[in-house]
Computed example of a mutant assay.
Amino acid sequence: MKKYLSYCCTIILFVLFSCSNEEYMESQNMILPKTLKTIYPNNPSENFDVNIVYNGNKIVSTSNKLEKTAYSYNGNYIASETKYDIRNGQEIKYFETFYEYENESLKTVSKIMNGEETRSVYTKNGDDSITKEIYDFDVKTKKISDNPKQDVLTILNGNLINLVFNWGSNDVMTCSRFQYDAHYNAFKNVLGFNVLLDQEILGSELSVSSFNNLTRHSYSSIASGSIIFEPYSNSMVYEYNKKGYPTKKTTYDYADKIISIIEYVY
Rank of each mutant, 00 (worst) to 15 (best):
L206I: 00
S27E: 12
S120I: 07
Y266W: 09
Y71W: 10
T35V: 15
F95V: 10
A223M: 11
Y254D: 14
V190W: 04
S61H: 10
M173I: 15
M236L: 11
N74P: 00
K68W: 01
I12G: 04
N170I: 05
N194I: 00
V53P: 10
T82P: 00
Y254I: 12
I155H: 03
F137T: 06
K140H: 10
Y219T: 08
K249C: 13
I259C: 08
Y219I: 02
N241L: 01
P246S: 05
W167F: 12
Y94W: 15
E205I: 12
Y219A: 07
V53N: 14
V53S: 15
D181M: 03
N213R: 06
I262A: 05
I39Q: 13
P41S: 06
S105I: 05
D146V: 10
K37M: 02
S220I: 08
S204M: 01
L32D: 05
F17P: 02
C175R: 13
S233M: 06
S120N: 05
T174W: 05
P33A: 03
F137I: 05
D198Y: 02
E100H: 06
L202K: 00
G126C: 03
D253G: 07
I31D: 01
I201A: 00
N43A: 14
L66F: 05
I11P: 02
E91L: 15
H217N: 09
I134T: 11
T123Q: 07
T141H: 00
E230Q: 03
K3E: 10
D138T: 01
L163N: 06
K142A: 08
G115A: 04
T251Y: 01
T62I: 14
L160A: 10
L66Q: 10
Q150L: 10
I112M: 07
C9I: 11
I161N: 01
E263Y: 09
Y219N: 10
M113P: 00
K142M: 06
N213D: 06
F48P: 09
E200T: 04
G225F: 02
T131Y: 03
R119I: 10
E91S: 14
A79S: 12
N170Q: 13
T62D: 10
Y40W: 11
E133H: 08
N51S: 13
T10R: 03
L13P: 00
H217I: 04
D85H: 15
L197F: 05
D181T: 03
N170S: 12
I227T: 12
I161A: 04
D171I: 12
T250Q: 08
D253W: 07
T97Q: 14
T215M: 12
P231C: 05
G244H: 07
V109F: 11
N162M: 09
V121E: 12
K149P: 07
K68S: 12
I39D: 05
L214W: 07
N21T: 15
V50A: 03
L13Y: 01
L196I: 04
D171W: 09
L66W: 08
S27P: 01
I259Q: 14
G115M: 01
V237C: 06
A79H: 05
E200S: 03
Y180I: 02
